[in-house]
Computed example of a mutant assay.
Amino acid sequence: MSGTCGVILAGGLSRRMGGGDKGLLELGGLSLMERVRDRLAPQVEAMALNANGDPARFAELGLPVVADSVEGFAGPLAGVLAGLDWAAGQGATHIVTAAADTPFFPRDLADRLRTAAESSGQPIALAATPDPERGLARHPTFGYWPVALREDLRRALAEGTRKVVAWTDRHGTAAARFDCAGHDPFFNVNTPEDMIRAKEILKEGAA
């Protein structure tokens, strides 16, 4: 295979939801992860789930589960590395990542990330939305990542790098801008209150 694989990032601890797998929480008859899977699948050639612990709990998703190779819940970069390692085995050149708790992300995410990287000549692209204070706010769990940089990322993690942008900015990173019409497309479910809002967005048909 050549091309782009998708990786759903679900390796976090979900502390604000009381722990457990918040991606398995139901929203409108489907789990959050199922909604993320169904949005990402048409955009990529193959897909995997990055999660730690017993993979059997995700069997209904029908996806290969790849765990972090870095111990101690090292954050999203560890999930990106796990995805890159898996994609290398598929013969892919890039991955697109999406967070498991963000059910309304754009249906053209992969194409726009790829276009942003290619048009700017940068190896990595991150999704971004307008922000009144910063101009653009980047969403580092929604990115376009080259498999060719996986050994560099492995070294960075071994050296203690944990913040996504601390690594991406070393290599040059494009911003793929997504405007917010009605709701933030990268709205994520962190708390019970967020789940209430997600149900409202779904009911409004805005997603």
Score class of each variant (00 low, 15 high):
A92S: 11
R15W: 12
R177L: 15
D169H: 13
Q43K: 11
D38H: 05
L113V: 08
M195S: 07
I201H: 01
E34Y: 02
D38Q: 09
G160Q: 05
G18F: 03
I201E: 02
V165T: 15
P103R: 01
M1A: 14
G53L: 13
V65D: 00
A128R: 01
A100T: 08
R177H: 14
G121V: 07
P64S: 03
R170W: 11
L24Y: 08
A181P: 06
S120F: 02
L109K: 00
A175E: 14
L136S: 10
A175N: 13
V164T: 11
L136A: 06
A51F: 00
A99M: 10
G182R: 00
L25N: 09
I201Q: 00
V189N: 01
W145G: 08
R150G: 09
K203H: 15
L126C: 12
T173Q: 02
A158E: 14
R138H: 15
T102M: 12
D169I: 12
L13Q: 14
T97Y: 01
L202Q: 10
P146M: 02
S31C: 09
W86A: 05
D179P: 06
G19Y: 02
G11E: 03
E118K: 15
F104S: 04
A174Y: 04
E45S: 15
V147T: 01
D21R: 15
A117F: 09
A125M: 10
A51H: 08
Q43R: 02
G205Q: 07
L109N: 00
L109W: 00
K163G: 12
L149T: 03
P140M: 07
G143C: 03
L40E: 05
S31H: 11
P106Q: 07
A125K: 00
F186Q: 09
G72V: 02
